[in-house]
Design a protein around this nucleic acid. Structure first.
Length: 919
RNA sequence: GCUCGGGUGGUGGAAUAGGUAGACACGCAGGACUUAAAAUCCUGUGCCGUAACAGGCGUGCGGGUUCGAUUCCCGCCCCGAGUACCA
């Protein structure tokens, strides 16, 4: 009998489940280790072979850590609220909860087949009330908090209330909305209850405000910045436009600096850190005020600039089309033109705006401002290249030293004044931050650095503005006009002021509704629910996933989101594996919420994910057949150019090593039942292309099929064998046979063809020990640096060598089983048990490398001549350079090689190489 | 445009501290076993060259440092990802 993976894998999966082999303990004397996979959304399509890549890697590491004496937390669950289930509900009327339950069951079934060591007793689902109760609770904590700049942390809103009552908010160091009114304590104390509530919204960590949002009409909801890609919704690819709406937002911008500096101590790939840094977008500069000339109400335009040193080069000021001063400062003669321009610019979709970036447009407002240093009159323009959402929505235009201002000035024939030497401003803007200042009054002759320092000092002394740091990170819109999400636990009073639902009323359970669509009046779906007196918005997808890693620590706790003891024991995630697509969404929001919970004393750590690895995406590998036009005849790949053909995607599951299974093809689709073929060398060869893995391209490979055909252990090994974890690579089933062959060879060390047990208790030979310990050394090093692909090679080498040695010593097999167990746990358990062990291999001590088995007394030195390897010479180790040199130069073959040439130099690196330099 | 990855045989990839380039596997070719196929096993396989050796070339391209470079430095080309009027 042969290696029967089906029986073995089913047997051990059942055994692990029945014995709760991988249950993690919250009380343990062992050191803890927390290995986490990114939260999956259970989609209707199920898992394809690309999804488990990261799960396999994390499972290998989790199993390895158990072997080395750690108490390992390795949980799994589902981010089960979301758009697809709701879109499906809209189409079919089926409740999203039913769809979700069904999809989760399917995921679970697929995951179970791969043999992961998850602790399923801790499973969580974000759409279940006992989970989202705590998501709502965290929302409440954010609502009841403000950001205290003085102590640089979030604090209880009641502390703020005391400060406002006693000191007002003039000079108060707190993060708040730009338009927060300034009040003395007396003024504040005169506010009505409702006005106090309105006022506090300027400070709450989650707040209601009229914000400019990304509105997606097709999805009927707003989206956050990270949910919009290229001006289209990330889910579904629908157009997005800008709208002003009253929405819940999260004051993540309060954490900009901490989110930025926190990155420095994280063991993440530099690329993800860079993406986050870029997204946070810190820039240093100054704000500067320009007084409007003849202003009706003494209006002042404030700009933000990173180049205050170029202030003497300002030749105009540009406002964004949304700028509020456009209403008041534009003289009547210009009003119509300005309004027309602003209206058109504002109503463009994000996508239109982005595709028109190169196109310069704008209008002169008719207004002028006074240059703060020269007193000159400077024209004010409106232009769509200025964004309302960044800085102050207004720029001081210095065309000589900014390419956008330059393009604008060229287009409208505005003056360009050079103030820094170094470029050729007749050709293009000189943007480099180096050179000497000219045409700049008291800055003349200084370099950029000195001029910047000096001008900021001047600006602050003359009270024209101040040095300022600006962040690109915007507050995150938190309301979604959708059904399938966490209800926001808030009621409104008659004035529209929000009141938080008390904790003892949580969870606020999602109500039943008749249809999953907005109401006729355009209100969100929740407005359809009877007696629903709460907010009709729901939370975004990122709410539940921003804290789930804490819930796993104590997932069944009914009184707290997790107990202090559990939080204290598990602390943070030690290893987090997932895709880089979460760089600006999940990974940023989860850090934000963790820092917030830390500030408020609910958790003891400030960064949730100590080490992060991004697995590369697995792309699809499509196969093609070539049909001669208007026929049912298919030509093989290399004959296709002789015919007029159409390339058609063919199901990759009926293609093997790019050769089509013709019978299967005829049975595949009815129209191919009578297909004719033109073969090459009796085979039909298919074409190949790398594309995204998707149903429509017929290139989806399911892990279930692979498990059925080759086994889970083979799948696990093969996914790792494919290449480095972080690299994107196309899935290609070609080659999987090699891995299965390896497992069969391993099996044959233990059983012969007649299924007779070959194991002996004899002491292994030095050669056998050597093969094993070479492998122990390599695999241990590989796991520690997450190089799983190279481990698989080492296993193959080891088994090849043991095969050659005809080794069937129990001691060797036993050790090798543990070594292999993280990668191929089923066969490892089986062999371990065959060796006579009654307990699971899961916590068996990982083999320790013993150098003495690898000690050699000679080494085959590569002998190079002028850097080219010519031969190997076996020379004893442990002798000195001079002696090696003598041996080499006495060798007849060496002498032959260098005959007739002058020996210039000989380099000997003991144990490595000899290089002879001749001339 | 900017930022970050990456370019090695027919293919996936290896080379961890500058020291034998191509480990391991697929594929391919030849052979053994078999009536046959599958499975299994053995041999070969970077390219040019040769009967076989010898020899030459070779890690995207061009230069440099070095006894020695896939690895370090400079300049380019190509592919992928992120981002995009952020003042």
């Amino acid at each position: 009998m042969q290696y029967n993976f089906k029986t073995i894998e089913a047997k051990w999966q059942k055994h692990w489940a029945a014995n709760q082999t991988f249950k993690a303990e919250n009380n343990s004397t062992k050191p803890k280790y927390y290995v986490l996979d990114m939260f999956p959304y259970p989609s209707g399509a199920g898992l394809h072979v690309g999804h488990p890549l990261g799960y396999i890697a994390s499972d290998i590491y989790a199993r390895y850590k158990r072997h080395t004496g750690f108490n390992v937390l390795h949980p799994m669950g589902y981010d089960s609220f979301g758009l697809p289930a709701e879109q499906y509900a809209i189409q079919t009327g089926q409740h999203p909860a039913i769809t979700t339950t069904h999809n989760i069951a399917r995921y679970r079934e697929q995951l179970d087949k791969i043999g992961f060591s998850f602790d399923w007793s801790r499973e969580v689902k974000t759409s279940e009330p006992n989970y989202y109760k705590w998501t709502q609770w965290i929302f409440g904590q954010l609502f009841n908090s403000w950001y205290d700049v003085k102590n640089n942390k979030a604090a209880n809103i009641n502390d703020l209330l005391v400060l406002l009552k006693t000191q007002g908010n003039i000079g108060l160091q707190a993060v708040c909305d730009e338009d927060t009114p300034l009040l003395t304590p007396a003024q504040f104390n005169q506010l009505s209850d409702s006005e106090v509530q309105q006022f506090l919204l300027h400070y709450r960590m989650t707040y209601l405000a009229n914000s400019r949002v990304n509105w997606c009409p097709n999805l009927g909801t707003v989206l956050s910045n990270d949910e919009v890609k290229d001006g289209l919704s990330e889910r579904g690819g629908h157009p997005v436009e800008q709208r002003l709406m009253r929405q819940w937002s999260m004051r993540i911008s309060a954490y900009s600096e901490r989110l930025l500096t926190g990155l420095d101590n994280l063991d993440w790939t530099e690329s993800i850190k860079e993406i986050q840094r870029y997204w946070i977008g810190k820039s240093k500069g100054a704000s500067l005020k320009f007084n409007v000339i003849d202003a009706p109400n003494k209006e002042v335009i404030e700009v933000f600039t990173t180049r205050p040193d170029t202030v003497f080069g300002v030749s105009f000021v540009t406002l964004s089309p949304e700028h509020e001063l456009l209403q008041s400062i534009v003289p009547s003669a210009h009003r119509a033109a300005v309004n027309e321009y602003a209206t058109i610019a504002k109503n463009r979709t994000e996508r239109e705006r982005m595709t028109n970036v190169k196109h310069v447009s704008g209008v002169f407002t008719g207004a002028y401002v006074q240059h703060p240093f020269t007193g000159q009159a400077i024209p004010v323009w409106v232009g769509d290249y200025v964004l309302a959402g960044y800085g102050t929505g207004a720029v001081m235009a210095v065309p000589a030293h900014d390419s956008r201002d330059y393009a604008f000035a060229q287009h409208f024939n505005l003056p360009i004044t050079e103030v820094i030497l170094g470029g050729d401003i007749t050709a293009e803007a000189y943007e480099a931050k180096e050179g000497t200042l000219i045409n700049s009054d008291f800055l003349n002759g200084l370099d950029v650095k000195k001029a910047t320092d000096k001008i900021i000092t001047e600006i602050e002394q003359r009270q024209l503005g101040k040095g300022k740091i600006n962040y690109r990170l915007r507050d995150a819109i938190f309301s979604r006009q959708r059904y399938w999400g966490e209800p926001i636990p808030v009621e409104f009073d008659a004035q529209g002021m929000p009141t938080l639902l008390p904790n003892d009323k949580l969870p606020l359970v999602l109500p039943e509704i008749d249809k999953y669509l907005p109401t006729e009046t355009g209100e969100p779906p929740l407005a359809r629910a009877e007696n629903w007196n709460y907010d009709t918005n729901t939370m975004p997808g990122w709410a539940g996933s921003s804290w789930y890693f804490f819930r796993y620590m104590d997932s069944q706790n009914a009184n707290e989101f997790a107990s202090k003891e559990a939080l204290n024991y598990w602390k943070e995630v030690d290893l987090y594996i997932g895709g880089s697509e979460h760089a600006t969404g999940h990974l940023l929001y989860a850090r934000f919420w963790t820092k917030f919970l830390f500030d408020r004393g609910f958790v003891g750590i400030e960064e949730p994910f100590k080490k992060l690895i991004n697995q590369g995406m697995i792309q699809g590998r499509s196969n093609f057949v070539y049909r001669i036009k208007n026929t049912n005849t298919f030509v093989s790949y290399n004959l296709r150019e002789q015919h007029d053909i159409t390339a058609l995607n063919v199901d990759v599951n009926i293609v093997r090593n790019d050769v089509l299974d013709i019978d299967a093809f005829r049975k595949w689709l009815p129209e191919y039942a009578n297909a004719e073929f033109m073969l090459e060398e009796d085979k039909y060869v298919c074409g190949v292309e790398v594309e995204k893995m998707s149903k429509s391209k017929w290139n989806v490979v399911s892990p279930d099929d692979i498990c059925a055909q080759y086994g889970a252990d083979t799948l696990r090994l093969y996914e790792m064998f494919l290449g480095p974890l972080e690299l994107a690579k196309p899935w290609n089933t070609n080659g999987i046979e090699g891995v299965l062959r390896f497992l069969k060879k391993l099996w044959r060390l233990v059983y012969d063809q007649n299924d007779l047990l070959l194991l002996t208790n004899e002491t292994p030979t030095p050669a056998e020990y050597k093969a094993l310990h070479k492998c122990i050394k390599k695999v241990t090093e590989d796991i520690e640096r997450f190089s799983f692909n190279t481990s698989v090679s080492s296993f193959m080498i080891c088994v090849n060598e043991l095969n050659e040695l005809k080794c069937n010593k129990k001691e060797i097999v036993q050790q090798l089983s543990i070594l292999l167990s993280p990668y191929a746990p089923h066969i490892a358990e089986e062999l371990w048990s065959v060796c006579g062990n009654a307990t699971s291999i899961a916590t068996a001590r990982f083999p320790v490398f013993n150098e003495s088995y690898l000690v050699e007394n000679s080494f085959a030195y590569p002998i190079s001549i002028n850097g080219k390897m010519r031969m190997n010479l076996d020379i004893a180790l442990g002798i000195d350079k001079e002696e090696i040199e003598k041996i080499v130069l006495a060798n007849a073959d060496v002498l032959k090689q260098i005959a007739g040439k002058e020996l210039k130099k000989i380099i000997v690196v003991p144990g490595k190489i000899v290089n002879i330099v001749v001339g």
